[in-house]
Nucleic acid binder design. Sequence first.
RNA 1: GCCAGGAUGGCCGAACGGUAAGGCGCACGCUUGGAGAGCGUGUUCCCUUACGGGAUUCUGGGUUCAAAUCCCAGUCCUGGCGCCA
Length: 460
Amino acid sequence: MLSRQFVRDNPEAVREAIELKGVEGVDLDEVLEIDAQWRELKAEGDRLRHERNEVSDRIGELKQAGEDEQAAEAIERSRELKAELDAVEERADELESELEEWLLRIPNVPDESVPAGDDESDNVEDRRWGFDDRRELPDPVVPHYDLGEDLDILDFERGAKVAGGGFQFLKGDGARLEYALIQFMLDLHREQGYTDVFPPLPVNSRSMQGTGQFPKFVEDAYRVGGHNDEPYDDDDLWLLPTAEVPVTNMYRDEILLDDDLPLKHVAFSPNFRREAGEHGTETRGYVRVHQFNKVELVNFVRPEESYERLEELVEEAAAVLERLGLPYRVLHMCTGDMGFTQAKKYDIEVWAPADDMPDGPDVGGRWLEVSSASNFEDFQARRAGLRYRPERHESAEYLHTLNASGLALPRVVVAILEYYQNPDGTVTVPEPLRPYMDGQEVIEGHEPVGEAAVGAGDRE
RNA sequence: GCCAGGAUGGCCGAACGGUAAGGCGCACGCUUGGAGAGCGUGUUCCCUUACGGGAUUCUGGGUUCAAAUCCCAGUCCUGGCGCCA
């Protein structure tokens, strides 16, 4: 949320941000008008209340002095003032809550360093890593969704049976690979100075609003009880779409010490997203699912340090791919492709070589986003009441929040299954993961269970 | 889930219908040879160019001319009982 002061003082910058980010239904002129009216009523209310306070003081004094007649007059005057005041303040409160509603729907303003652009085609590639000395790959590379079923380590059909489309089982070495990745990532980030947090998985509405998911993106969330269309209040529960929500809200309405900053938390959690209307070959398999695991990095920093921290944050997330030897690129997101809450954002995309996509790299395959590193400046901090005290005697200020995935597990699994694939249909386990898999070097797959085994031709 | 008690500034803590004591911490100033102690001022949010004003005792309602104080509902905390992987 932007401050009222900022919106008042920089209407053009706000107008531009609304347009760039394609936010509809926000009439800035009306917002400014409401703000002006509210301030007027506020001044009038303050004046009336001041007078009433004076009268009230006098009643106390008169009563003490035993001047009952004069006290009765003053009480009468106080009654009149109260009636006037109620009318003015009721209207002022209405305007103020309208104003708050609007402010929650106004997007963050992009930082000056963000490249201008309309959509994803205008994003600027920052750098590529790992393509010069890449592995020799089988031809063709089998897509992860086929290979995963061949090896019987990914099972989408049974996931759909048990929970619905978009849910899956990881089995045997598939599950172990996932666990290994989680432990590996947590260990790496701990080396980078992160403190572990394992968050609650349901979060209340207030938390979803604090990080900026609500009110705009209610339809993407899984609600615990009740329908998403039904009205909700601050206490209703939702399954977290990312650990960013509980971890950023962890210090909500608190004041941190200057010494606490920068505060770096790493959180592992499953994530739940409805992904309404997202289907097709680009999302086939383990690429866009309703439940997935993610290791999330959340930073709380002093405002003057947030942009430097963002650069470091990208490195911290990318380090996962470098240790695993997976080629990737970093994209500088343009103004038109940034989300509602971000002031600046980088995407890290890993290379998945199997499915050639038009916007993939020249060597074939496609890019899969595994992390977004974002600086929210004080946008989330203001929504969530996250402050710190720069100097001990000074008043508290909003701090800056940042986060990045470090990383989203499924797409890393996809990249491993495709990039570390061998011609015989096995998958080499990247070296750094072996210690987490009892030294296992190769994933060779499993015998299928049930009648599927007959189809595989492995039984007499 | 039931019963009882509780929630006051950065922290502790008083006031229990008449408009928020006091202490600690922190900052600045005075004082001092220096340090400490002492004294003074300040230490939440909003409106206002300013002067100044308003709000704020967990949250939301209610009673009253007036609510930290009385009543109702809720949230959270503590203790006891119950249940439980």
